[in-house]
């Protein structure tokens, strides 16, 4: 079960500058574990206290995983995982 993971600029220091990398797993949790094995340090940028970090948005195919089970979201074989920086602010 392999997925293509799209990496935002801010996290490419972990992937040697690559915009897209492959990772194995059938859930987002497993994909992130596999990412961490090949790109150490990336997990801490995505997950905090067992949940997705508020600074990132993660999408499996076209759906925001916050609406699809979070880290338990299913990742279909050949699917696409897209990571984007959250854009927010205010006083």
């Amino acid at each position: 079960m392999s997925a293509t993971v799209s990496i935002p600029t801010i996290l490419r220091t972990h992937t040697g500058g690559e915009k897209q990398v492959k990772a194995d797993g059938s859930t987002l949790q497993e994909v992130i574990t596999d990412l961490e094995a090949n790109h150490p340090g990336i997990k801490d940028r995505l997950v905090t206290d067992g949940a997705l970090h508020r600074f990132v948005n993660v999408y499996v195919n076209d759906e925001d995983v916050r609406f699809a089970g979070g880290l338990d979201a299913q990742v279909p074989d050949g699917g696409t995982v897209t990571i984007l920086p959250a854009v927010a602010g205010g006083r």
């Binding site: 948005n57 076209d62 897209t82 927010a88 602010g89 205010g90």
Partner: peptide, 26 residues
């Protein structure tokens, strides 16, 4: 233009891009 999806609407003092809309634009 992006939809401000921050739930602090009453305060009117924060913003957050709607994540699905952000993905569509991306």
């Amino acid at each position: 233009p992006m939809t401000n999806a921050d739930d602090a609407e009453a305060r009117g003092s924060d913003y957050r891009f709607d994540s699905r809309e952000q993905f569509a634009v991306h």
